[in-house]
Simulated scan of single mutants.
Amino acid sequence: MVLQKVKKVPQRKCIACQERDSKKGLIRIVKNKEGEIFLDPTGRANGRGAYICRSSECLQKAIKSKALNRAFKMEVPDEVYEHLLVELKEYE
């Protein structure tokens, strides 16, 4: 009898609503070495990552609670939030 090893599904937590989901179910926001902040749909870009649900409500909640500021240990400019909202619309 051969036992097949069950592959673990990586879990991540949304920084806005604190819900846990599979890594693929959430979308990654990255801050790279140059300080640029952008959505990373592949989940493989270099840099510090924070995960968020694929909904603009969760991004709005993260903006209101300054969750990205805490995740990236910096003040995130409003233009970046606006850009992220526009980008996220493509993945909803």
Score class of each variant (00 low, 15 high):
E75A: 14
L68F: 13
S55E: 13
I63V: 00
Y81T: 05
N32K: 05
T42I: 08
L84F: 05
H83E: 12
G35Q: 11
I15W: 04
F38S: 01
G43D: 06
K33S: 10
I29V: 07
N46H: 14
F72H: 15
R48V: 13
H83T: 11
Q18T: 14
G43Q: 01
K73H: 08
K8M: 10
N46F: 00
Q18Y: 12
D40P: 01
E92Y: 11
S65M: 12
K31I: 13
F72Q: 04
D21E: 14
E90V: 06
Q4S: 15
K33R: 13
K13M: 15
Q11F: 00
C17P: 06
E79L: 08
K66C: 02
K66G: 03
V76M: 05
I15F: 03
E79M: 07
R12T: 08
G43A: 03
V9A: 13
R48W: 06
R44S: 13
R54H: 04
A50E: 07
N32R: 04
S56C: 09
K66M: 07
V2S: 13
E57S: 14
E82F: 00
G47Q: 04
R70G: 10
V30C: 13
C17A: 09
N32D: 15
I37C: 05
E34L: 08
K61L: 12
Y91E: 05
E75Y: 13
G49Q: 01
C17N: 14
E57H: 11
R12C: 04
C53N: 14
K73D: 10
L26R: 12
N32S: 08
D78F: 07
E19K: 10
K89Q: 12
F38M: 01
L59W: 11
S65I: 09
R48F: 09
E92M: 07
Y51Q: 07
R44A: 05
I63H: 11
K24H: 12
V2R: 12
L26W: 15
E34D: 14
K5M: 11
K24R: 15
N69G: 01
A67W: 06
E82N: 03
E87M: 07
L85F: 01
S22N: 04
Y91T: 02
S55P: 09
K8Y: 02
E82M: 06
L3C: 00
F72M: 12
E87R: 07
D78A: 12
H83Q: 15
I52V: 07
M1L: 15
A71Y: 06
E92T: 12
G35M: 14
A45K: 06
E19H: 13
R48N: 00
V86I: 08
P10D: 09
V76S: 03
L26I: 01
D21Y: 03
Y51P: 10
I27Q: 02
A62N: 02
K5Q: 15
I15V: 15
G25W: 02
R28I: 03
V2T: 10
I29F: 01
I29D: 01
N32E: 06
G43W: 02
L88S: 05
E57F: 11
L39P: 05
I27H: 02
I37E: 03
Q60P: 01
